[in-house]
Design a protein around this nucleic acid. Sequence first.
RNA 1: GUGGGAUUAGUUCAGUUGGUUAGAGCGCUAGUUUGUGGCACUAGAUAUCAUGGGUUCGAAUCCCAUAUCCCACCCCA
Length: 418
Amino acid sequence: MRYAAQKGTRDILPSEIHNWQIAEKTFADVCHSFGYEEIRIPTFEQTDLFQRGVGDTTDVVTKEMYTFEDKGGRSITLRPEGTAGVVRSFIENGMTSLPSPVRLFYNITAFRYEKMQKGRMREFHQFGLESFGAQGPDIDAEIISVVDVFFKKMGLKNIALHINSIGCPNCRGEYNRLLKDYFRPHVSEMCEDCQARFEKNPLRMIDCKVDGGKDIVKNAPRLIDHLCDDCKAHFEGLKARLEAIGISYTIDPNIVRGLDYYTRTVFEFVSENVGTQGTICGGGRYDGLVEDCGGTATPGIGFAMGVERLLLETEAQGALKEAPSYVKLYIASMSEQAKIEALKICYALRLNGIGCETDMAGRSFKAQMKYAGKQGIPYLAVIGDDELASGEVKVKCMADGTETPVKLDGLVDFMTGK
RNA sequence: GUGGGAUUAGUUCAGUUGGUUAGAGCGCUAGUUUGUGGCACUAGAUAUCAUGGGUUCGAAUCCCAUAUCCCACCCCA
């Protein structure tokens, strides 16, 4: 017990890996069915990318980044999320000139220096997706339906979709003035954080947990009621599309999203099973981000899903799957010569894609049987002097006890498809 | 960053007001006459009682510090 996994990190063990693989495969399949292609980006980027991309007033950037200086004196940061890196790659690789929309998905680890609790790790996994170049609400509805289809394929139900619009820089500026006028007489009664927010980002005051119950906050003007005509039309367009597809939602004026790059549509998929914060998947539109990161102005939208939280939810809903036995056949051997024959047979079976095992531990015959049983290996064959002489084994099906005689050279054919 | 709870075998947990050599279930290894598994029975291995100090004749047990885990606040996936 000398070494332990670092705080906020953990091992994903063989006993749980099956459900990770199912989730990864399902996510990739669903994304592919929408025309998204996988991208793999580096684990670290230059610190500046996140400061600019995510926003240097956000909690994520100001207190949660793993930042260090490398041997060349560069400031490096382990990615706290995926969008900034994908945007960097999109610009750097000239994807602007690809036909719109450019649809990308990814499966990454991300790092945030945080105090842990349920559903929150310092190293965690995200499935994410970004779509560039489409500005109408069609694409908003599309990526939300990616999540919806994915949840259905995972066997998950009742994960609530919350949507909101936080407008564009134009209507938000207008609204911020309105909010400030509204809150100005009450600032002194509010919590410390809100007093700071009043100057920096009054929008977040609405989201305050401390003052959230107060009438001042409850009755504050809502951004959703003060959108400019374009933003209003966009949001109405999204609602109409979700209704047409049959995806139910609730409008939640309080979702603001803590990352600076969001504009217009923001959304969350929320559950009660993944800890108090409850968000399994969060995303939204970021029409200014590509330009902010040095590319030509390109609208974009995306989401990220916490894989640990997803699996917490899957477990809570009883939708985890049993792992299969990859090893189909155990060959027990009764002598040195038989053991060598068993090795030869196993080699041939594996060349043909059939999982099999034979004794490696020098166990007695009886202990070999016991081992095969405990491992849940579905078929069993014994090789001893008789089999070596006759060139035929009896393959026993462990589930029903039936035995089938099979020639040694016909074993591959017999096991194929089992 | 703030607060609460916890830490004893691989694992889940007992362990009395401080008192001899710290226990159990599961798991693991072997065996129950060398030709057929899961069950049962028998035996065995495995613990710096998280770490470092302190109190005491004596500490897994009481005190302090540190680390880690869990939960909540904040914020996010």
